[in-house]
C-alpha cells in the first residue's frame, strides 16, 4: 500500500445557480493509495458527493470543474476525451451512486442488467461467459445465483444494493468510488454490506473510496479517513489515529457529537451553529470552520490555513505548526 493510484491536486468545482456559484469542491488535494479503503467523511451539504463527481466528471449540467488535476495512473482524467474517459469508467474505475438501488430498471431481470453492463464494456463475452461472471460476483456479494431470474421489485433494499455493487464489480475495476452506498438501509444490512466490501478490498486488493456522513460505520474497515467540511479537506489520517486523537477542531466536534452506546448522555455534544454557505462570496473568510470553532484566533478569520503534514497525518488548522 504505497503507490498512489489516484492523485487529486488543487481540484476546484462549482455549481452555477441563480444566486451565483456554489463552490462545493474548493482547492482539494488528496491521494488515494493502491489497495486502500479510504473513507471521506462529510455532513450533508459539505460537497462530498460533488468531490466524487468532479473526479469522474459525472455531474449535472450546471456543474463546472474549474481547475486542478485528477491523475489516475499518471493520466489526467480532466483532460481525457469523453470517449476514453467513458471506457475507463466502465472498466478500470467503478462508481456506486447514492441510492443506487433505485437505479435498477424495473422491467429488467437481474440477469438482463448484467448482460447490458457487461456487453457494453466487454463486447467479446458471450452469454455463457457473462452469466458465469454474473454468478461469480453475485456470490462475492453473498447473493444466491437464482437472484439472476428475479426482477428488482422481488428483492429487498439490501439485496438490490448488493446487486448494484456486484454489477459494478463485475466490470472488474481496480478502483471503486462509493457514494453513501448503504444509507437508507437497516443497520444490520448496512453493517453486513460494509463488512462485505471490506472482505473484497482485503481479498482482491480493490482500492475503494467510500464517501459517507457516518465515521463510526467505518471503524475497523477504513485504512485512512479524510474529513471534509465546507468543500475542503480539513484532516487526513488513519482512522484509529483520527478517532482517538483528532487534530482539527471540527473533527473533534464531530466525534463529540456522535451518539454511541459507550458514551454517557453528558458526553454527547451537538456542534453549535450551522454548516457554512458554499456560495462564493458568502463562504467564511480564512478558515471555513472559524465561525463555529471554540479555539478561534484572529488569524483564523483572515488567513486560510494551509494543509500541514504531521508525520503520516495531515491537518489544515492554525493551531498547528508544520
Amino acid at each position: 500500500m504505497s503507490e498512489p493510484i489516484l492523485l487529486i491536486e488543487n481540484l476546484t468545482a462549482d455549481y452555477l445557480v441563480r444566486e451565483g456559484l456554489i463552490r462545493a469542491v474548493d482547492n482539494v488535494s488528496l491521494e488515494v493509495r493502491q489497495g486502500e479503503l479510504l473513507g471521506i467523511i462529510g455532513e450533508s451539504g459539505s460537497g462530498k458527493t460533488t468531490l466524487l463527481q468532479a473526479i469522474t466528471r459525472v455531474g449535472p449540467l450546471n456543474f463546472i470543474v474549474r481547475s486542478g488535476r485528477v491523475l489516475y495512473r499518471n493520466v489526467d482524467l480532466l483532460k481525457l476525451p469523453d470517449v476514453e474517459l467513458r471506457r475507463l469508467l466502465g472498466t478500470r474505475i467503478g462508481f456506486v451512486f447514492q441510492a443506487a438501488q433505485n437505479s435498477l430498471n424495473p422491467f429488467y431481470r437481474v440477469r438482463d442488467h448484467f448482460y447490458e453492463t457487461l456487453s457494453s464494456h466487454y463486447p467479446d463475452l458471450d452469454k455463457v461467459e457473462m452469466e458465469n461472471r454474473a454468478i461469480q460476483y453475485l456470490e462475492l456479494m453473498h447473493l444466491n445465483p437464482n437472484v439472476l431470474n428475479l426482477y428488482p421489485h422481488q428483492l429487498s433494499g439490501g439485496m438490490k444494493q448488493r446487486v448494484v455493487i456486484a454489477l459494478v464489480l463485475s466490470t472488474q475495476p481496480e478502483l471503486v468510488l462509493l457514494d453513501e452506498p448503504v444509507s437508507a438501509l437497516d443497520l444490520i444490512t448496512q453493517r453486513s454490506i460494509v463488512a462485505n466490501l471490506k472482505e473484497i478490498n482485503t481479498k482482491y486488493g480493490t482500492t475503494m473510496v467510500y464517501v459517507t456522513h457516518d465515521v463510526e460505520s467505518l471503524i475497523g474497515l477504513a485504512h485512512r479517513i479524510a474529513i471534509y467540511y465546507g468543500g475542503k479537506i480539513v484532516e487526513v489520517g488513519s482512522i484509529e489515529q483520527v478517532l482517538k486523537d483528532p487534530l482539527h477542531p471540527y473533527t473533534k466536534a464531530l466525534i463529540d457529537s456522535l451518539i454511541t452506546t459507550d458514551k454517557s448522555s453528558e458526553e454527547v455534544k451537538s456542534i453549535p451553529g450551522n454548516p457554512p454557505s458554499l456560495l462564493v462570496g458568502h463562504k467564511p473568510q480564512g478558515c471555513v470552520f472559524h465561525p463555529r470553532c471554540p479555539y478561534v484566533k484572529d488569524i483564523c478569520k483572515r488567513v486560510e490555513p494551509p494543509m500541514l503534514k504531521l508525520g503520516d497525518r495531515h491537518v489544515a488548522c492554525h493551531l498547528y505548526k508544520g
Binding site: 453473498h142 439490501g158 444490520i188 471503524i219 459507550d262 458514551k263
Partner: peptide
C-alpha cells in the same frame, strides 16, 4: 450499535451479519 470502541473487523461477528441476510 454505534460505539467508538466497537471492533468492526471482527471476523466472527461478520459471519453472523452475513447469516442475517
Amino acid at each position: 450499535a454505534p460505539s467508538l470502541s466497537r471492533r468492526g473487523d471482527d471476523e466472527k461477528l461478520r459471519k453472523i451479519l452475513l447469516l442475517s441476510t
